[in-house]
């Protein structure tokens, strides 16, 4: 087909066009047909959201800002912050251990990561919650005996449901973070370490000012994945009846049987958190790409510019192209000025 087109255009090309030639783009009929079907399906789904009463938007609205749900949301956020901050701090230490030349530290970190990636998080939370069965008292005393304690506490009073979930999630997260951070550090060119060493930079400066900021570029996308995952991962707390967002809606629909509307409450809240985190991720990643690429303008900046451009164009049309004329005159004046100088 292409060949035919070329031959035909070759014939016509010999004629001298009387007017500027018009360009006709290739038409993608198949693409249009698929798009139409997809738009139809989306419309059907959106219509059903409104028309199908079983979605229960009234119930959704009733519970979306209810105290139980908001308390659950707060618990979810709190658990996420603790486990992510704690997990990444422990993870950084583990990553440094893994990269250290000490065989012992290396092995300790390797086995830690192996263990916490092997044990399901649910099992871990249950074990922490039931630690009192294995070790009834925790405290400081004579090693290898149970006889003499300087101080001690009953395990069950220390490891509340909240503590069990927070510890479980943090230790679990640490293992995964360690590997992400190690990957980031390994990705930094070895020449950077050599240059820092040649300048005599102390270890701390070398790690925090040179290596880590560069590693951050590859750590951040995977790291934000972990944070977004952890927001929903906190729902394992239901196993010890800790009322975070998901457990809270479960309790409510257990009472009123409005399962779908209440699940939607949780889903929409999770989506809102994920959206906020995605925006934060965009700007944080931008901050850490300084110096490596020419940064494109942010969406907000682009939107602002488009609006001002549109505003200017509207102004021009209103004034029957008078601003353009003025600017032309300006140019002419300046040229004359230059010539006269």
């Amino acid at each position: 087909m292409t060949q035919v087109t070329i031959e035909r255009s070759a014939e016509i090309e010999t004629e001298e066009p009387t007017e500027p030639l018009k360009v006709v783009r290739v038409r993608h009929w198949g693409r249009w047909a698929v798009s139409a079907v997809i738009i139809l399906l989306i419309a059907q789904f959106l219509w059903s959201l409104v028309a199908n009463e079983k979605y229960g938007w009234g119930t959704f609205g009733e519970y979306f800002f209810s105290d139980a749900v908001l308390d659950g949301l707060l618990m979810t956020l709190w658990l996420t912050v603790i486990s992510i901050v704690g997990g990444f701090i422990i993870g950084t230490v583990l990553a440094v251990f893994r990269l250290s030349s000490s065989t012992l530290l290396n092995a300790v970190a390797w086995w830690y990561i192996w263990f916490f990636r092997s044990v399901p998080i649910l099992v871990q939370v249950l074990v922490w919650y039931n630690l009192g069965y294995l070790y009834p008292r925790l405290g400081l005393g004579t090693p290898f005996t149970d006889d003499f304690w300087i101080f001690s506490f009953p395990t069950t009073s220390l490891l509340t449901a909240f503590a069990a979930v927070a510890i479980g999630l943090t230790l679990h997260q640490a293992a995964y973070s360690a590997e992400i951070i190690r990957g980031g550090i390994v990705s930094v060119d070895a020449g950077q370490t050599h240059a820092a060493a040649a300048l005599g930079l102390p270890r701390r400066v070398r790690f925090f000012r040179i290596i880590l900021p560069q590693a951050a570029r590859s750590i951040l996308p995977a790291g934000f994945n972990e944070i977004v995952g952890q927001v929903k991962g906190t729902s394992v707390a239901f196993i010890v009846a800790l009322p975070e967002l998901f457990y809270s809606v479960q309790v409510i629909y257990g009472r009123n049987q409005q399962i779908i509307p209440l699940l939607l409450v949780a889903v929409v809240w999770y989506a809102i958190i994920t959206t906020v985190l995605s925006v934060v991720q965009y700007y944080v990643e931008r901050r850490f790409s300084r110096g490596t690429v020419d940064l494109p303008p942010t969406p907000i900046y682009r939107a602002k510019k488009q609006i001002t451009d549109l505003w200017h164009r509207l102004g021009e049309e209103d004034g029957k192209a008078s601003p353009a004329v003025t600017s032309q005159t300006d140019t002419v004046t300046s040229y004359t000025d230059k010539e006269s100088v």
Partner: peptide, 9 residues
């Protein structure tokens, strides 16, 4: 160094 090894950040 041959490859400069400036700190890009």
């Amino acid at each position: 160094f041959q490859n400069f090894n400036l700190f890009p950040n």
